[in-house]
Each structure stands twice: as structure tokens, then as C-alpha cells.
Design a protein around this nucleic acid. Sequence first.
DNA 1: CGGGTAATTTACCACGTCGTAAATTCCATC
DNA 2: GATGGAATTTACGACGTGGTAAATTACCCG
Lengths: 341, 341
Amino acid sequence: MRSTMRDVARVAGVSPKTVSNVINDHPHVRSHVREIVRKAIIELDYRPNQSARGLRYGKTGVIGLAVPSLRENYFAELADSVIRAAEKRGLNVLIGQTNGDRRNELDAVRGLRLQGTDGLLLSPQGMGQRDIDALNVPLPLVLLGERIFGGPTDHVTMHNVSSAQAAVEHLFERGRSRIAIIGAPDPDDTDPGSATLRLQGYRKALDTAGIPEAPELICVTGHWSREAGAVAVRRLIDDQVPFDGVFALNDSLALGALRALGEAGIRVPEEVAVIGFDNIDEARFSVPSLSSVDPGRDSIAEMAVQMLVERVRENGDPRPPRLSKPEFQIVTRESTGPASP
Amino acid sequence: MRSTMRDVARVAGVSPKTVSNVINDHPHVRSHVREIVRKAIIELDYRPNQSARGLRYGKTGVIGLAVPSLRENYFAELADSVIRAAEKRGLNVLIGQTNGDRRNELDAVRGLRLQGTDGLLLSPQGMGQRDIDALNVPLPLVLLGERIFGGPTDHVTMHNVSSAQAAVEHLFERGRSRIAIIGAPDPDDTDPGSATLRLQGYRKALDTAGIPEAPELICVTGHWSREAGAVAVRRLIDDQVPFDGVFALNDSLALGALRALGEAGIRVPEEVAVIGFDNIDEARFSVPSLSSVDPGRDSIAEMAVQMLVERVRENGDPRPPRLSKPEFQIVTRESTGPASP
DNA sequence: CGGGTAATTTACCACGTCGTAAATTCCATC
DNA sequence: GATGGAATTTACGACGTGGTAAATTACCCG
């Protein structure tokens, strides 16, 4: 059995409260006593009981992070960033996977899934605009991503439209004009997800450049996986749709696209230039390496944790929800080649 | 403020203990009363306080998982598997990143890093055989990987030697004989890490096939990253070392190797066959897709969580440490091509 | 060396839950 | 309707910690 404060107190010959004072750097403790207590703590290998502290303080020092799946690189890297941001503030992170399932996400919001946390960072995938009311919960909550806008909680998202536009313009600058977009939203889905917003950016770029939209270049995919990216590009090739650029709505799709292009013997970037979105680590190491939109993952994590911490602290008085978007950046690598003169 | 059991009891007109009994499915509760209490719970949106429960039970229902970094796909996928295995048992997982730093790992073992957990799964990278005594801690601990053997804790590892041997033989079967091994251990490092063991398997395969070892084919790398894999292969090519097969000690190295081979215009698998280790998701989608050793990640996670749960339960009486190794499998994909007749 | 103030330490209790044991209610039986 | 044993509910307290306020000690000054 772990020793408790009482044990330490007994060994040190002081009251438990004094031990508590030493541990919490209470100012009024004589250095002499502090030393004795410190020694006893080391001797007994005492560790404060987190449950007891949590009970006393009404806070656990743990935040939850609910993402669809850590197998998706973007979320693994996001988790990494969140853990680092939390660590800076002395917080631990409980990670849950929702599989992008709406029900799981709702359970997380209701506090059924990651219990014992002070607050939750949720990156929804299955939930949508219709679930906005479900976000009215006592649990401090910060939303990540673009499934739900205008909700009652703080929200960290990214410059989807303008960065997508910039990505497509990046392809234009390289002399491409028949740009396939991979991962477009199902037209039935009216929720303004990342897909919808990035498609808007695509259209804006076309519009600005005065290029008419070609429906056959808009590839709808369900899941944003490598597989889906490969399938979409294979279909384009099979259907003999001419294209010289690919804007994939995330890097996994782009990598799948690279794969399909490679299979078909189509050279990248000479014949087709490819740009992705998310700038996952893997993008640097594909063959060819993948140009991508860097949405500022570290900043996202940092802002999200910061917002959550503030919400946890204020604990009650409901300031209006805040929306935060870090700066994006286009990262140029081999898959888009050099700009045309 | 969240409502407590007392609040529910007041609303339902019963004692707090009866509420507790309802929540914990205590047998002697009249269904009539159970209903009333259930209604009150819903009305107040009551959630049991995990800290109080943790204090009462002496357990938190949370286990820790300490890995080097979630940015490494292997560990992200391992985390995914661990979370799933934990979920089955009603446990939550607190994830910490050590960056492979020995000190961070030791802190985790000492319980300084992931506080408030019932036990810890540790995948050490910086710690080694010399740290074996540090594992004698009250915290239930299950070790993953191959940095430390013969310690006082349960341990889940893999068939490193025999699976590495099988991987090399897989290349032999495809008519290759000059097999470069990428990621070999620094000869100074005497700890029996994965690298050392897999190198042993490589040697065993050579030995069995009667092929002499060629020192120039043994490529030492520090980090097992895509970058390192690419650098190692570039060096082989620059040094004009002849080779027709690559055994990379993990998939990241292998993907880096594919990248370097692609850059050099060397065809895979026609000129050089490549096999990796870990079977990360990404292996299925590289160009060409990567053959790999599947070490049975789900089984590893399942066994590890199971062992940890048992240790947490027994809580004291120290059964001797157990060692567990799931079966491995060679997954054949394009990078090694078909077997020679 | 007494008096008084500031510094330091302590006693007590509540945080929310649930095991234990005691109290109460129920119900079948006579 | 009283009796008794079983079923159900309740009172009490402890888990480990730290806030509050009271108690004690230290120390300065005259």
C-alpha cells in the first residue's frame, strides 16, 4: 500500500497539514521543518493521491481528447501536439477514439466516455450542425475542426477556404489548369465540413482565374483514406478524364493519389502535380515528396488547450464562445515541382 | 456545479446509499425504488464523481501508456490497439510521450509522469538493461518491446530473432542474396534492443543459407526514421555497394529506403526487393506497397492490457514475472515481388 | 523577563462514494 | 392480527487531501 500524508507526518513528527504545506510550497514553513518533511517523503517514497486531490479540488488535472482514430496520421500528430501543450501546463491527457461515429462523439460530449476529466477537446466527424444543441453541457468543451460552427463552445478551426484557394493557386502557378479535387463532399451532406469549405476554396480559385468548373474533376469520396484517394484517381484514369493537377483534401488522399498515379506510370510532377492538405510528417518522405497545406497543427493544439484551461478555470460564468484560426502555410515539395516562369 | 449522490437522493426521497446501490446494480433494491432513483438521476443529469470513486476504491480505472512518440506510426497504432483493449475492460488510457528519453522513462516508472493511474504500460527506448533495478516499483508495470529482458515485471515482446530470420529468408526465396540490413545497432550498444535481436535473425538466415556476411551491407543508423532509411540507402548507392535486397528493421526505415531507391531510379522489386518490419498501415499504400513483418500489434496490446489488469487486481502478492510473445506473420506485398520458382 | 505581534503549526472538517452493520419494512404464516 | 425471518433501506464512517480558523511558538521591544 502506498504511504499517505499521515504516514509521512508520523515519520517526520509533524501534523499531516504541515506535510501538505510542504508539498504545496506553502510560504509559512520553517526551512528546518521543510527539510525533515522532505526527507520523510523521500524515505517513504510518498506520492500524493490524485483521487483525493481531485476530490478536494474539484478538478482532476486531466483533460480528454476525443479523435476519430490515432491510426490517421493527422490525429496522431494532433494528439502529440495536444499532449505537449497539456504537459506545459501540468495536465495529463486521456485519449479516446470515436471512430468518427456520431453516437460515440455525443457520448463523449455528455461525459459518458472519458470520465474524470476537467474538460474535453473534441474533434467531431460524425456529428454535424444538427447536433449543435447537444453541445450545451456543463463539461468545458473545445471543438476542433469544421463539422460544427456557431456552437455554444470555444472552437479552433483553420482557414479552410483561403488555404484551399491558395493550394489550387499554387497549382495554377505551376502551369496547371485541369485540377482534380479529391475528397469532395457528398452533395447531400449539407453540413459545412472541411470538405465543403475546401471545395469552396477550390471554386474561388477557379473563379478568380477565370477557369470554368469541370464536374468530372470533382471526385467525391467517403472516407479520407489513402485507399479512397487511390480509388478516385484510378477512376479518373480509367474514365480517361484529362487532368494535370490534383488537389487532395488531405494528405492521406494525396498519398493514395500518388500511389495510383505511380501504378499507372504517370509521372509526378511532370505530368500531374499533386498537393495535399494537413502536412503530416509522412508527406516529407513519400516518393515524390508531397506538397501540402500546413494548417498549423501546433498552434491549433496550443490554442485549444489554452482555451480549455481558461474555461475550466472560470468554471461557470459563461463568456461568449470564441473562435480561433491559426495561420496556414503552403509547403512546397517535389509533387508540385517548381513554379512556371 | 455537478449534482452529487446526495442531490439525487434528496430528489428521489431516499438515502444516498440507495442511490449508490442503484448505480452499482446492488441486488436488493425494489424495482419501484430503482425507477424513482433512475428518474432523479436523469433529471439531475447526475454523473458519479470519478475522484471520489477512485479515492473510495483505491483505484482510478485509468492506465498509463508511455511511448516514445505518437508521431511514429508504430506507436500511434499501438496506442490505438491499447485504447481498444482497455475500452473492452472499461478502462481509460492516459498517454504520455517520453521522446525515447531515458530520464522521462524513468520518471514514468517512478510514477512521476502519469499520475493517477492504476498501472503503466511502458515502451522504453532510452532505458536499457542497466536500468533493470529501477523497475522494482510498487506501480503495476508491464514492459513492451525489447530494451530490457529478465526484469521483475511482466513483459510483452515479439519473436524478433525468428521473424527477422523469416523476413530475410523471404528475400532469399525471391532469389536475392546480397541483402542490406538497414537500422543495425551501433556495435557499442550492448543492450539487446530490437536492433540487436533482428540483426541476430539476419545472421541466422545468412548462416542457414550458407551465405557469408558482408560488413558493407550492414548499415547502422541511429534513429529508425524514414530519413535515416533514405540516408543509409543513398550511402550504399553512392559507395557503389552491390545489393539486391533490403531488410529494414522497421517500416519507416523501409519507406525511407524506397524513397532513396526511387530517387536513384532503381526499380523495386525488380532490381532491389525491400521488406520492412512492423506492418504499419502505411505499408499498404506506399509505391510500391511494402512487404513487412507483422508482429501482431493487436495481440501485443491485448496481452499487455490483460497482464496489467491482472497485476492491478492482485495488488500485492507478487507472482513471478511473465513473458509473452504473440505470433508474427510475413505480409507479402509488391516490394518483394513473387517468389522465384 | 513580561507583553504583544507575527510566524508557524495544528485541529477539524468536507469533498463524494460505498462497505459495514444496524435499522426498518415487508410478507408469509399461523 | 401477531410473529419471525427475509428483504430492503439507512446511518455511519473512512478513503487522502487541503482550506479555515484556532492554537501554539518564536521573537522583538521595552
